[in-house]
């Protein structure tokens, strides 16, 4: 339950269109605020860059996952077939690499996909079943047709009245103070 004495989490503004949200994010970022979050019912091209998000680390994590998978796959096959229990199958060399490719490939894909899932959860800090933003009135419409912008109070530049003034100038439909409680 929100209580008025709980510390301030931030200030949110609700917008009724994608264009207004993008414009507002641009202005707020230009005013020097850095702890910003923009919430929308579908991905908006370039919005993360506008609020200062640089490249996602996910591709690197997935690449590393894929390499680990490939090395694991090939290493397991070579160890089992070449050293642990060498068997002559149809006169093929013990390191019969063409036959080891399918499993190497499959494990590379598997590990990379699993790494991607882990990257997605860790980078997005999910699961997070409770978040202060969920107490914002009408926030459930952020998953249908409304767009929200939040400036967090932890931002060193955060000045409540200044943010409120900016939001008003940017045609926000509603402005809410969010408490952490």
């Amino acid at each position: 339950m929100t209580s008025t004495t709980a510390p301030l989490y931030g200030l949110t503004a609700r917008f009724d269109s994608e264009e207004k949200l993008v414009e507002a994010a641009r202005v707020i970022f230009a005013e020097g605020y850095r702890r910003i979050d923009a919430l929308s019912p579908y991905p908006i091209e370039g919005l993360a860059e506008i609020i200062g998000q640089r490249r996602s680390a996910a591709p690197l994590i997935m690449l590393i996952g894929g390499i680990i998978g490939a090395v694991t796959g090939y290493g397991m096959e070579l160890y089992a077939m070449g050293y642990f229990y060498p068997l002559n199958i149809g006169g093929r060399p013990l390191n019969s690499w063409p036959l080891f490719i399918p499993i190497t490939f499959e494990l590379a894909v598997l590990f990379s996909a699993l790494a991607g899932m882990v990257a997605l959860l860790v980078l997005n800090r999910l699961p997070c079943l409770y978040h202060p933003l969920f107490s914002v009135p009408d926030f459930q419409r952020a998953s249908t047709d409304q767009f929200f912008l939040c400036v967090e109070a932890v931002d060193p530049a955060f000045k409540r009245d200044h943010v409120r003034e900016l939001f008003e100038r940017l045609n926000a439909t509603a402005i809410t103070e969010v408490r952490t409680g």
Binding site: A25, D37, A38, L39, S40, P41, Y42, P43, I44, L47, A48, I50, I51, Q53, S56, A58, P59, M62, G66, F105, E106, V109, S112, A113, G116, M117, A119, L120, L121, L123, N124, L126, P127, C128, L129, Y130, H131, L133, F134, F139, A142, S143
Partner: peptide, 27 residues
């Protein structure tokens, strides 16, 4: 999982989804 449609979430999401698609194609 507490998804709230944050722009940063969407960005990571789309990146991972696109690479998963790229991996699934040869798969």
């Amino acid at each position: 999982l507490g998804w709230r449609g944050s722009a940063i979430h969407w960005k990571n999401y789309q990146t991972v989804y696109l690479i998963l698609a790229g991996l699934s194609t040869p798969l």
